[in-house]
Amino acid sequence: MLYVKVKTEDGEELVLEVEGMTEDEIREELAKAGFKIEEIEVYEVEP
């Protein structure tokens, strides 16, 4: 499983499960949803 931890400019932290997306695609999708991203951390969790 691939997850991203996202910190927004307003200090909110989100953890999202993503599969088959690049970091650029993740940033693009979050921007479309109205999030202003300060930091993204991508990590993989073994089942």
Score class of each variant (00 low, 15 high):
M1Q: 08
M1G: 09
M1Y: 13
M1S: 10
M1L: 14
M1R: 15
M1D: 04
L2Q: 10
L2P: 01
L2G: 06
L2I: 13
L2R: 15
L2M: 12
L2D: 04
L2E: 03
L2C: 08
L2W: 14
Y3R: 15
Y3E: 07
Y3Q: 14
Y3T: 15
Y3F: 10
Y3W: 13
Y3H: 15
Y3I: 15
V4P: 02
V4I: 07
V4S: 00
V4M: 02
V4L: 03
V4C: 05
V4T: 00
V4H: 00
K5W: 11
K5H: 08
K5M: 05
K5V: 12
K5S: 04
K5F: 07
K5N: 02
K5Y: 10
K5D: 02
K5P: 02
K5I: 11
K5G: 03
K5E: 04
V6G: 02
V6T: 01
V6K: 00
V6L: 07
V6R: 00
V6H: 00
V6I: 13
V6E: 00
V6P: 00
V6D: 00
V6Q: 00
V6S: 00
V6N: 00
K7A: 05
K7S: 07
K7Y: 11
K7I: 15
K7T: 14
K7D: 02
K7Q: 06
K7H: 09
K7V: 13
T8V: 04
T8Q: 04
T8P: 02
T8C: 15
T8K: 05
T8F: 13
T8A: 05
T8D: 04
T8N: 06
T8S: 06
E9M: 12
E9H: 10
E9K: 13
E9Q: 12
E9A: 13
E9R: 10
E9L: 11
E9G: 09
E9P: 11
E9I: 14
E9Y: 08
E9S: 13
D10G: 08
D10E: 08
D10W: 11
D10C: 12
D10L: 08
D10M: 06
D10R: 07
D10N: 11
D10I: 04
D10T: 09
G11H: 02
G11A: 02
G11I: 01
G11F: 02
G11Y: 02
G11T: 01
G11R: 01
G11L: 02
G11S: 02
G11E: 01
E12P: 03
E12K: 14
E12R: 14
E12T: 13
E12F: 13
E12G: 10
E12W: 14
E12D: 08
E12A: 11
E12Q: 12
E12M: 13
E13C: 15
E13P: 03
E13L: 11
E13R: 04
E13D: 06
E13H: 08
E13T: 12
E13K: 03
E13G: 03
E13M: 12
E13V: 14
L14V: 07
L14H: 06
L14Q: 03
L14P: 00
L14A: 03
L14F: 15
V15F: 13
V15S: 04
V15D: 03
V15T: 06
V15Y: 14
V15H: 07
V15R: 05
V15A: 03
V15N: 05
L16M: 09
L16I: 11
L16T: 01
L16A: 02
L16D: 00
L16E: 00
L16R: 01
L16N: 00
E17K: 14
E17T: 14
E17C: 15
E17R: 15
E17I: 15
E17N: 07
E17A: 13
E17W: 15
E17G: 06
E17L: 15
V18M: 10
V18G: 01
V18I: 10
V18S: 02
V18D: 00
V18C: 14
V18P: 00
E19C: 15
E19L: 10
E19N: 13
E19F: 15
E19P: 05
E19K: 13
E19M: 13
E19V: 13
E19D: 07
E19R: 14
E19H: 14
G20S: 05
G20V: 04
G20L: 05
G20M: 06
G20F: 08
G20K: 06
G20T: 03
G20E: 03
G20Q: 04
M21H: 08
M21Q: 05
M21P: 01
M21V: 05
M21F: 07
M21T: 06
M21C: 14
M21N: 04
M21A: 05
T22A: 03
T22G: 04
T22V: 02
T22L: 04
T22C: 06
T22I: 03
T22S: 09
T22R: 05
T22W: 03
T22Q: 03
E23L: 15
E23W: 12
E23Q: 06
E23F: 14
E23G: 06
E23M: 15
E23N: 05
D24E: 13
D24G: 07
D24K: 11
D24F: 10
D24T: 09
D24S: 11
D24N: 08
D24P: 06
D24V: 09
D24W: 11
E25M: 06
E25D: 05
E25V: 04
E25F: 03
E25W: 04
E25A: 07
E25L: 05
E25K: 05
E25Y: 04
I26E: 00
I26S: 00
I26R: 00
I26L: 06
I26M: 03
I26K: 00
I26V: 06
I26A: 03
I26P: 00
I26G: 00
R27T: 04
R27A: 03
R27F: 07
R27Q: 02
R27D: 00
R27G: 02
R27H: 03
R27L: 10
R27C: 09
R27S: 02
R27P: 00
R27Y: 09
E28S: 08
E28D: 08
E28V: 10
E28A: 12
E28H: 09
E28M: 12
E28Y: 12
E29M: 15
E29K: 12
E29V: 15
E29N: 07
E29W: 15
E29F: 15
E29I: 14
E29R: 11
E29D: 05
E29T: 11
L30C: 05
L30F: 08
L30Q: 00
L30D: 00
L30Y: 04
L30H: 00
L30N: 00
L30S: 00
L30V: 03
A31C: 09
A31F: 09
A31D: 04
A31T: 11
A31N: 05
A31R: 12
A31H: 08
A31M: 12
A31Q: 10
A31G: 07
A31L: 12
K32L: 06
K32F: 04
K32H: 05
K32Q: 06
K32E: 04
K32M: 06
K32I: 04
K32P: 00
K32G: 04
K32D: 03
A33M: 14
A33G: 05
A33I: 11
A33T: 04
A33H: 13
A33E: 05
A33N: 06
A33K: 12
A33R: 14
A33L: 14
A33Y: 13
G34S: 02
G34D: 02
G34N: 02
G34C: 06
G34V: 01
G34P: 02
G34H: 02
G34Q: 02
G34I: 01
G34F: 02
F35V: 06
F35L: 06
F35D: 00
F35R: 01
F35I: 09
F35M: 05
F35K: 02
F35Y: 13
F35T: 01
F35Q: 01
F35W: 11
K36I: 09
K36L: 09
K36V: 08
K36C: 11
K36A: 08
K36W: 05
K36T: 08
K36Q: 08
K36N: 09
I37S: 08
I37T: 07
I37G: 07
I37V: 12
I37E: 06
I37L: 09
I37F: 09
I37N: 09
I37K: 08
I37A: 09
I37C: 08
I37Q: 11
I37H: 07
E38D: 10
E38I: 15
E38N: 09
E38S: 12
E38P: 02
E38M: 14
E38Y: 12
E38K: 13
E39H: 10
E39W: 15
E39Y: 14
E39V: 11
E39M: 11
E39L: 12
E39A: 12
E39F: 13
I40T: 02
I40L: 07
I40D: 01
I40G: 01
I40R: 01
I40A: 03
I40K: 01
I40W: 07
I40H: 01
I40Y: 08
E41P: 02
E41I: 13
E41M: 11
E41Y: 14
E41G: 05
E41T: 11
E41F: 14
E41V: 11
E41H: 10
E41K: 07
E41S: 08
E41R: 08
V42A: 04
V42F: 14
V42E: 02
V42G: 04
V42Q: 03
Y43I: 10
Y43K: 04
Y43D: 02
Y43E: 03
Y43R: 06
Y43C: 11
Y43V: 07
Y43F: 12
E44R: 08
E44C: 13
E44S: 09
E44W: 15
E44Q: 11
E44Y: 14
V45E: 06
V45L: 09
V45R: 12
V45F: 11
V45M: 10
V45S: 10
V45T: 10
V45G: 08
V45Y: 10
V45C: 10
V45Q: 10
E46I: 11
E46S: 11
E46N: 14
E46G: 09
E46A: 10
E46V: 09
E46W: 14
E46M: 13
E46F: 14
P47D: 07
P47Y: 09
P47C: 10
P47M: 10
P47T: 09
